Simulated scan of single mutants.
Amino acid sequence: MIPSAPDPVPTPTAPAPAVSMLRLLGGFQVSQALYVAARARIADRLADGPRTVAELAEAADLRPELLRRLLRTLAAEGVFGYDEPQDRVTLGPLGHTLRTGAPGSVRNVALMWMETHYRPFAGLWQTLHDGIPAAQAELGMPFFDWLGKDPARIATFSGAMGDMMRTVRADALAAVRLDGVRTLVDIGGADGTALAELALREPRLRGTVFDLPHVVAAAPALLRDRGVADRITTEGGDFFTAVPAGADCYLACFVLHDWNDAQALRILGRVHEAAAPDARLLLVETVVGEGTPPEVATLLDLTMLGMLDGRERTRDDWRTLLADADFRLDRVLATGGPMCVVEATRMPRTARV
């Protein structure tokens, strides 16, 4: 008897366009699954090695038969590994990014985005008709006003911004050069993560973390923990009204993108009023079409569209905005990540007609 030939192995092909589109359309479901995994601390529970679905479910007080389906979905995205015969879960290539406090972790971002950004984005259609940010329509007030009404929301937001500073903005912060800078004010400095890192790098640097009073309240503890509280102070206030005066360098990490041009000009105006002559201005921001990978800027621009009045800007946008506020754009420094360092110098006030 002649043995039958084995069935041919199908040649892998690229997914059909409709399949690729379905994956994009299902993104909202995946983001919620990631939120559940982050909130349940699944990645934390796998830090010491594999565990069964039953063990994870018991530890997180979840239903094992439902958790299994969620983890199987996230395993297909590289977040976890799932051994079906043993019903056992491991960390996947992306799993460490959901571990609390791990290098590269964005767990706090997963919590914050799903608790603050998810529902408003259902109103994106209306935003493109009336120009009102979807978050403002959903929440009944501007996003930052709503955020400031609840200490728990503030803590979640501050944690997410800390994650962003340690991951997405890390390369840009490492690229910041402070040659000759003696005093620096970090505008919108939140919990002081950025200025603390710069102070550790520059032993002679003195400075101030400046933000809204309820936001900057978290900074003193962090500055003490980092051992820089003797050189770095904190101050609460509103950067639309005034900022600490007399520094020879002002830093704003991921701040101006939150605001439209008119609002950004008001902030820059307060910095210009406060800054010493020829002071330097350093902006850690995305620059559309630049950075690695450049698509981060367009994704963040979509976030701004739904949540705030701000936007991501091109190099020419930054040059124009800075010139209108009497700052000279010196250069845009690309880094190893998606953020750039926009360097500018304070110029004398231009007479306005």
Results as ranks from 00 to 15, higher is better:
A275N: 00
G131R: 11
L281E: 02
V271T: 08
G162I: 07
T52D: 01
G81E: 09
L22D: 10
I42P: 00
L66N: 14
G236D: 11
E202S: 08
P10Y: 02
A221Y: 07
P220Y: 10
D171W: 04
A252H: 06
A229D: 15
D163N: 13
P64D: 00
M165A: 11
R51N: 07
P64G: 01
R166M: 07
G180C: 01
L94I: 09
A325D: 03
T127L: 10
T167A: 03
P151S: 08
V79C: 12
A323Q: 14
A344H: 03
A351H: 14
P142T: 11
A110Y: 09
R313W: 06
D261Q: 10
P15Q: 05
D317K: 08
A170M: 13
A245D: 14
F240T: 13
D309G: 07
F254E: 12
V106R: 15
G140R: 06
I154N: 09
R166A: 08
L281I: 06
P8A: 02
G306C: 03
L66R: 15
P203M: 12
G310E: 01
D83L: 07
D317T: 04
L128M: 14
D324L: 12
T208R: 11
D179Y: 06
G27Y: 14
V181Y: 01
D145Y: 11
D48W: 06
R51L: 13
L200D: 14
R226T: 09
T13P: 02
T167C: 03
V36G: 01
V181P: 00
A135N: 00
T167H: 03
G337R: 06
R107A: 11
P244A: 05
E312N: 03
L71F: 00
I267M: 01
A247H: 03
R68A: 07
F121M: 15
A276T: 02
A43W: 00
R206H: 12
N260A: 07
Q126I: 07
V284W: 01
E77K: 14
I42L: 10
